[in-house]
Amino acid sequence: MPRMSMVEAIRDAMDVMMARDESVVVFGEDVGYFGGVFRCTYGLQQKYGTSRCFDAPVSESGIVGTAVGMAAYGLRPCVEIQFADYVYPAYDQIVSEAARLRYRSNGEFTCPLVIRMPTGGGIFGGQTHSQSPEALFTHVSGLKTVVPSNPYDAKGLLIAAIEDPDPVIFLEPKRLYNGPFDGHHERPVTPWSKHAASDVPAGHFALPLGKASIARAGTDVTVLAYGTMVHVAQAAAAETGIDAEIIDLRTLVPYDLDTMVASVAKTGRCVVIHEATLTSGFGAELAALIQETCFYHLEAPVARVAGWDTPYPHAQEWDYFPGPGRVARALVETVEA
């Protein structure tokens, strides 16, 4: 199988879908000729022409608003917001329009749209290149929200998202674009090529939305994670020697409750982790779900490790980012509770 970085896997997913389906169009700021500030669309305009892959004005509501109209026409737009931190001008179009077209028109108009956006911190991105706004989308009925953690998943999930008949928010942890990252910023970064998940099938393959994967099987405690935090959790498990079962949610909504419940029923303990701020973060939903469905299995309170309830700072990057140290402490406390 070809080896791909996450950037290459994402680009390949769009390439595969543009070749298969004439209705797939790709656009966004710097997405066309230049191929994207992260190179995720590199070469697509050259291959498919300017009417299939093109540069857009710097207007997030314009990008998403026109894409909603295109989707209503019958195209399958896969648009890019340069950073998730800049999605807010498009929030009205996403929440009030994309998410509700099917419902409010009783299925007359639908919105098969994918909105890709680089997300997450750990790159000294400061306040507006580091945010993890997933909870703003998981709270909206009618949207699906996907966060891959490796090249294999990124390709399979993005193809599934483009084929999905409903709008999908596709959050790409930019810290993982070129290699896995476990939060040990003091160590050199290894590229994806040294990682098993960079074996990505050529051609078309889709992974189901709404299905979690077990990133590490274990019996002591269940860790619910997604994106970069999957790798942080693995480091924390290795360093503590705790036999954690790490679940990579992959899709936040619709979520895979069965996989979560089966694991917590087995381990009796649960730690929820994400980069996003704590209060009203997606972790609150996960903790509530586990409490509701696994109350009689739980041997310890459900713990949450998350970003602090502050804007994402610059100089204090590693004090803010929930790294392996903080996750390890939560694992130990939960197992010993």
Binding site: G65, T66, Y73, Q93, S96, R100, R104
Partner: peptide, 22 residues
Amino acid sequence: TVSGNLATQYVQAVGWAMASAI
């Protein structure tokens, strides 16, 4: 389909027209 949110459809119309051209 008419939305309660003002002006949202204005830019969607442009996108629909772009799709027709594409």
